[in-house]
Design a binder for these strands. Structure first.
Lengths: 220, 220
DNA sequence: ATATGTGAAAGAATTCACAGCA
DNA sequence: TGCTGTGAATTCTTTCACATAT
């Protein structure tokens, strides 16, 4: 039974990776936990703890070799390869996500786009033809899609999620502001933009900050 | 010194509120912590604890009066009024956020839009004229903008954030995948979509789920 | 009978502090 | 000396369990 990794650790690993990338680009050879902490908005001890979950990557007295830690984290996070992604919802949000450079840079490839709107079905999005959501059962297994991004209206989200799960998708990133039900075996993450804005409204109204953590992590 | 409210509690309050809205719409009179828990993906005890931070809203043996709890939560979250918001970044993501219905429904009003691109400056977005980011210092205080949504490329984010803070914005919702620096007094939340996708990649690669919480909250 | 509100207990995550190694 | 790796201590969050109220 492998150890249980806190979700917050994984988030921070992504942040460390981001900083390592920048520094490697800049030709930096080594980095300290202190600097990684700064870049991720956490403490050096936290950085070391996070990394220690996966092994021992540093050199005492010196720090971390940028290149090595970079590739180690890449591998740990599963970013040493490409991922085939489906996008459901070809509206404004879907369109923005489709051309979101940061996804592409990280190896996420949107290889299928679905929508219900007959007006949109058939459109060519940079080489990917928008198809009807009814085609999910045939297209998803066929193109070996591994994860899906859901950018549909709230009312449609659960139905689409069911279809995606049925079609064998292993993970869903949901942008609709609803709680989705899915089997335990399917990974589910929500990006709830309204929730975040509401958090700010709450904070402003109170005039004060909540837990110290609130300034550091998203929320996500 | 008022009590310290965990960020996770605030997030859940938003979820409860969402469900209460639906149920009120449906004519429901009372609700139990059990049902609220289900809707938010948590436990009844958690619901009661969350609410108990702010007071005592239920009736023993009966549950919560939908209408009352709804308006109480609305007030607690600062959603019983409108908020003036600035949007910086008139690209694809900015455009999607501008017309995001759920923001509008919650009382968030985008009253100013900024971009650097001279091509976009001057455009009329549904009654709001896109202005140059250089106009932030004059427009933001003038229109009494209280919070800002940042949808600019990573490299530009910190500069814009500085300008917004300088102009008196109290809270920033950042969509750029960078760690922003801001004074303690300014609330800062990040929506890091790449981080979420990477979390899914990590999970798929491992073939297993992390903490039980990971299935419930965003992340955020 | 039923379902809340809340101290007490358990469980997680973070921080401390220092031994260990270049 | 400088900085990592890690048990121990601390702090934060969630769950339990029951007294309390209708």
């Amino acid at each position: 039974m492998s150890k249980r990794i806190p979700i917050s650790t994984v988030r921070r690993l992504s942040l460390y990776l981001r900083h390592l990338e920048e520094e490697e680009e800049a030709g930096r050879e080594t980095l300290s936990s202190k600097e990684l902490a700064q870049a991720a908005g956490t403490t050096p001890a936290q950085v070391r703890k996070d990394l220690s979950v996966f092994g021992s990557f540093g050199v005492r007295g010196l720090g971390y070799a940028v290149r090595d830690l970079h590739s180690a984290l890449q591998k740990i996070l599963g970013l040493d390869r490409e991922w085939s992604v489906a996008l459901v919802g070809a509206g404004k949000v879907g369109g923005a996500l489709f051309s979101y450079e940061t996804f592409r840079n990280r190896g996420f490839r949107i290889r299928a786009v679905f929508d219900v709107d007959p007006e949109k079905v058939g459109d060519d999005w940079n080489g990917v033809v928008v198809r009807d959501v009814g085609d999910i059962p045939s297209v998803v297994p066929n193109r070996e899609i591994e994860m899906a991004i859901l950018a549909v209206p709230p009312g449609a989200a659960q139905g689409v999620a069911d279809a995606l799960v049925e079609a064998g998708v292993g993970a869903i990133l949901n942008f609709a502001p609803v709680k989705l039900e899915a089997p335990e075996s399917v990974l589910l993450r929500n990006v709830d933009m309204t929730l975040e804005l509401e958090g700010l409204a709450f904070g402003l109204r109170r005039g004060s900050v909540a837990s110290p953590e609130s300034r550091r992590l998203s929320s996500s």
